[in-house]
């Protein structure tokens, strides 16, 4: 989309890239080292019950590296394996990484964690252990943040960030999202199946983007930064968000309570994303879906909840 201007190669699409490539290319060249990688062959002990193929990494890559010279932990979900969904092993790898960030941050230092979300939520074949893994991940995020670690979520993958993944995203210190980065608890098909097509038509793709898509989340205040769909853009966002992400304390939670109460007051009776954007101060909401990333980023700078210290 954007031609290279400074002689560098064009940065690859985040959406099109595999999880391991996202992790590797996001970090400083040559610094990424994986823990329990595919060679360890730690696969799901449960998918065999369903005669389903397993993957050597159970659909998540965890490791360490450097970001602009600073040591970080990174976890990247692979949306092309089981929709990036949380199973027992998948979740446990993320839990272990976050507990390490907590312990590394206790001694006065801080170890940032980047979570590259790409998930449909809980893996239904492992529903109970997947759900429990999400509860454990959330608690591990909070303990890491409480110890001083910044936990940054990056959302722009194929599977979006749905179900329990959306709740984990809500525990992160800050989020960057691209146009593709849908964030929600109930996915479009789930709402339609349970409440009917009158409540939500999952085949209406523009409705899906207006309700859960990256631009809406940015204008609503559900994500700090909107970025173009390139690995370089996510890298720049991760660096910026580690700098500005809020601490986890009682004052922050009170500010978040106020931020969300204000949101219900301002947007609680809006029927559609277009109404929210209008209410948020966008002059011509109909133009938002087709707007190129740079134009949208410029627009969004003046819009949205001001209190980004409250997450």
């Amino acid at each position: 989309m954007n031609p290279p201007t400074d002689g560098r190669r064009q940065s690859p699409s985040w959406y099109e890239s595999a999880a391991r490539d996202r992790a590797r290319l996001l970090l400083d060249a040559g610094t990424f080292a994986e823990f329990l990688g595919p060679e360890a062959r730690e696969m799901s002990p449960h998918l065999g019950i369903f005669d389903l193929p397993r993957q050597f990494d159970d659909g998540i890559v965890v490791g360490r590296g450097k970001l602009a010279g600073t040591p970080v932990f990174v976890a990247a979900q692979e949306g092309r394996f089981m929709g990036g969904a949380f199973g027992e092993v998948h979740g446990a790898k993320l839990v272990g990484l976050l507990r390490a960030a907590r312990d590394a941050s206790r001694d006065g230092g801080t170890m940032p964690v980047l979570i590259l979300f790409d998930t449909g939520g809980v893996r239904l074949q492992e529903a109970n252990v997947g759900e429990l893994a999400i509860g454990e991940v959330m608690r591990a995020v909070i303990e890491a943040r409480r110890a001083g670690a910044k936990v940054i979520g990056l959302v722009g993958g194929r599977a979006g960030c749905y179900g329990g993944g959306g709740l984990i995203a809500g525990t992160c210190s800050a989020l960057a999202v691209s146009e593709h980065g849908r964030i929600a608890v109930s996915g479009p098909e789930v709402i339609e199946t349970n409440r009917g097509v009158e409540e939500f038509d999952s085949k209406d793709r523009s409705l899906v983007w207006r309700t859960m898509g990256g631009k809406h989340r940015r204008l609503l205040g559900g994500a700090e930064l909107f970025v173009d769909d390139t690995i370089d853009a996510f890298r720049a966002a991760a660096i910026a968000l580690i700098e500005r992400a809020p601490a986890f304390d009682l004052a922050m939670l009170k500010a978040e309570q106020a931020r969300l109460a204000e949101r219900l007051k301002r947007f609680g009776s809006c029927a559609d994303g277009l109404d929210v954007w209008k209410q948020a101060g966008v002059d011509d909401p109909a133009k938002v879906p087709g707007m190129p990333a740079d134009e949208f980023i410029a627009l969004a700078q003046h819009i949205g909840e001001g209190r980004h210290d409250a997450r």
């Binding site: 959330m138 959306g166 709740l167 984990i168 995203a169 809500g170 525990t171 964030i183 929600a184 608890v185 109930s186 789930v190 709402i191 349970n194 409440r195 409540e199 939500f200 309700t211 859960m212 809406h216 989340r217 609503l220 205040g221 559900g222 969300l260 949101r263 219900l264 947007f267 609680g268 809006c270 559609d272 994303g273 929210v276 997450r311």
Partner: peptide, 15 residues
């Protein structure tokens, strides 16, 4: 499970 809840960012409220 509703359009309104997701529109308003239910993931943030539950989290």
């Amino acid at each position: 499970m509703s359009k309104r809840d997701e529109l308003l960012g239910l993931n943030e409220f539950l989290a």
